[in-house]
Design a protein around this nucleic acid. Structure first.
Lengths: 245, 245
DNA sequence: TATGATAACTGGTAAAGACCACTTAACATC
DNA sequence: GATGTTAAGTGGTCTTTACCAGTTATCATA
């Protein structure tokens, strides 16, 4: 069950085994899993390793512990996908829609002061990559996305890559090893200007959902500031929150 | 510095010391903190204990680790308040406004099917506590909140307690030891009905921000389903997200 | 000068053992 | 029957020790 020669750490192997058992519904919600001592002898691992695996699954929302009683399976509603940052493409696929996009603007620009503030840029000469796109779900216009990327010199994304891959985040990860790890988002209501209304095929003055996001990578550098205008009649924002700790 | 006789665990004491040093700006952003071996001899603690403290602060966003290089201080933007579930009252105070409320309805009702679904109620006889309130910031109407609480029998909240304390979450925590730990939220745009417009002192048909939330406690029981209508011209929703793990 | 090995650092994983605090059920006592 | 005690279970904390893996600067070598 646990392969000591595997490059995957033992605690991670055990976490995978337990996660699979939970997803297979070998345990029912609020059922206790075997105690740490039982797992210790069953898998022939030390207790700290067992605890490391259970820690991981607790943080991910699969299990919860009760001191003196045991460790229990969280009901399915609370499993999986806890706080995942998702791109527009991922988001659309999660909703069962086929994502699409049309690039309206692409190129390096001098950021305005608001963008500089969000991207924590102090260098006056620094340029950012602006990508303005109309976003579709099942070929219907859903949102208008205006993205400003702060990339280190040397790192570059071409228009062709965006056209082909669709998701900026996928390119950042695959090409540069940059992973979005944290984001601040705001949501508010605005009314469509004439231009926005035209692009989104709605009436001028229709209510829109404005989503602004600043994104940080795993080394805590601000990498993107993006404004997304969603059609008020076609889009519902979803988020899952957990309390500190 | 570390008091072994204290009831507070050593790893937690150390985390508090380090957090305070970070907040005092003893370290600059992206500065390395002392290595785990250095902390080990400095505080006379074992390395696992040191690591437990650093784990905690990393999860809370104060520190980040780089294998082979060291552990570094996250810039202030990313510190503190990572994913804290906040009540309306907390939210208003965070924005520098004085929260207020007026109770419009209060009492036990049979939940409709949507509410039952959100609160995961299967018992047809179960009743829920409905609290409908108009919410103010600096005495100006900001939002219309309709809350449905699923409490175990024996637990009860009175109208007077709400009037006095303001925050339902504060009562749940202080009176029953129930802590909100996880929530699903959606946000979308709607238009004010005549009644809503009247209460919020806006024009009928004005755009509103509709926030729906299902809340779970630490034992993973659904405790609240709430709909909050915010004035589109007065409210901006804020959330901080982190990637899984 | 350029290259590559090495050593000394960093955090990551793992074991074994100990004791504490909380929970529960079985038991003895009143 | 009600009450309090005890023992055995649970997870929570902590130490000591060991080795692995990534990073970096130094130094010997080509």
């Amino acid at each position: 069950m646990i392969d000591p020669s595997d490059v995957i750490p033992k605690y991670y192997q055990l976490a995978n085994i337990l996660r699979q058992q939970i997803e297979n519904e070998d345990f029912q919600p609020h059922d206790p899993i075997p105690s740490e001592r039982q797992l210790e002898s069953h898998y022939n691992l030390s207790r700290p390793t067992i605890r490391q695996a259970i820690d991981l699954l607790s943080r991910q929302g699969y299990l919860y512990r009760v001191h003196g009683k045991g460790t229990f399976v969280s009901p399915p509603k609370l499993q999986k996908g806890i706080l995942e940052l998702t791109s527009f493409s991922e988001d659309m696929r999660n909703r069962g829609l086929t994502p699409g996009h049309k690039i309206l603007e692409f190129g390096y620009v001098k950021p305005n002061s608001e963008t500089k503030r969000h991207l924590e840029i102090t260098d006056d000469k620094k340029k950012v990559l602006r990508i303005k796109r109309l976003r579709f779900g099942n070929d219907e216009p859903i949102g208008l996305q205006d993205s400003f990327l702060s990339l280190n010199s040397g790192l570059d994304i071409t228009r062709e890559e965006i056209e082909k891959r669709g998701s900026i985040y996928a390119i950042l990860q695959e090409k540069f090893g940059i992973y979005p790890t944290e984001a601040d988002e705001t949501l508010e209501v605005t009314l469509a200007t004439r231009e926005e209304a035209h692009l989104l095929k709605i009436q001028e003055g229709s209510p829109l959902l404005l989503n602004e996001r600043t994104l940080w990578s795993q080394d805590r550098k601000a990498i993107e500031f993006v404004r997304i205008l969603y059609r008020g009649d076609r889009y519902k924002y979803f988020v899952r929150l957990t309390r500190k700790q």
